[in-house]
């Protein structure tokens, strides 16, 4: 159980990036965090990852207070951030220090197979496409078997087609060991397709605006009416979070990634 209690962050330059954020997240739950740019989503994720310390409040995972990177928490960034001097396989093995060589090789091979890159084990990262590189990053984050996986806009630099592919892939991998996923995104489609719960945030200071539960069964049909309804609901919430006049969305078709951000 991941618990955030009144978490706040003020950067040294005085920017109050996050204010009184509380949530409790069950093991295996998939949370999508969505909100306008600058509303503290990355700040929140980095605090959970232990990369930055919260200024106020506490974050606990199964009772451990998080102040530094924790072995049970993994993170995937917007960019793959592979180490260019390591082969793909060595990149995936990067976080597997404590294990025997045999176990390590086995896990890496398995993970690369799971992300469909078994044939790329020996190549350098520079030889991968953007989508492939991000899949390697996903494999790298997953091989230590984290209980919580944080993803900060992991697919936003990819084209729409690759993005969908990776969303499906992520769900697939998640089903293997069911870690908790916290996914920051600004793609409403992505949030609705993946999440059990969508957390909408609002800016200045960044804080929680609304939580929208998603009661759709998986796999989700992106074309279903329920799906469209939920998307509309999220978009409306986003508009409200930014204090915008809410356009009447009832009769207009929703056009995928909206213009709201």
């Amino acid at each position: 159980m991941l618990a955030l209690d009144q978490v706040g962050k003020t950067y040294p330059n005085g920017v109050n990036a996050l204010e009184r954020f509380s949530a409790s997240i069950k093991p295996g739950e998939i949370i999508a965090v969505i909100g306008g740019s600058g509303c503290g989503k990355s700040t929140l994720l980095r605090a959970i990852a232990g990369l930055d310390r919260a200024s106020r409040g506490t974050i606990t995972l199964d009772g451990d207070i998080i102040t530094a990177p924790h072995p049970k928490i993994g993170i995937i960034f917007q960019e793959p951030r592979l180490l260019p001097w390591l082969s793909v396989a060595d990149n995936v093995a990067f976080g597997l220090d404590g294990l025997s060589k045999q176990e390590r090789t086995a896990r890496v091979t398995e993970a690369l197979k799971r992300v469909g890159l078994a044939d790329k084990a020996g190549v350098w990262p520079r030889e991968l496409s953007g989508g492939q590189a991000q899949r390697v990053a996903i494999a790298r984050a997953l091989v230590p078997r984290p209980e919580v996986l944080l993803l900060d806009e992991p697919f936003s630099a990819l084209d729409a087609f690759t993005r969908r592919d990776l969303q499906d892939h992520l769900l697939d991998l998640w089903a293997d060991s069911r870690p908790t996923l916290i996914l920051v995104t600004h793609d409403v489609d992505e949030a609705v397709v993946l999440a059990d719960r969508i957390v909408v945030m609002r800016p200045r200071p960044g804080r929680l605006f609304e939580e929208i539960p998603v009661f759709l069964s998986r796999p989700r049909d992106r074309a279903s009416a329920l799906f469209e309804d939920l998307k509309r609901r999220v978009l409306t919430s986003l508009d409200q979070s930014l204090d915008r006049a809410v356009p009447d969305r009832q009769d207009k078709p929703v056009s995928g990634e909206a213009m709201w951000w």
């Binding site: 990369l51 530094a68 072995p71 951030r81 990067f94 976080g95």
Partner: peptide, 26 residues
């Protein structure tokens, strides 16, 4: 950003130097 990867995987100071900084400056 790459140093941060090392931090996220909880590398100690010397390991960070050996596994990230040295190859990066080479």
């Amino acid at each position: 950003k790459i140093v941060e990867v090392g931090r996220a995987f909880r590398l100690s100071g010397p390991a960070l130097v050996r596994r990230i900084l040295l190859p990066a400056v080479l």
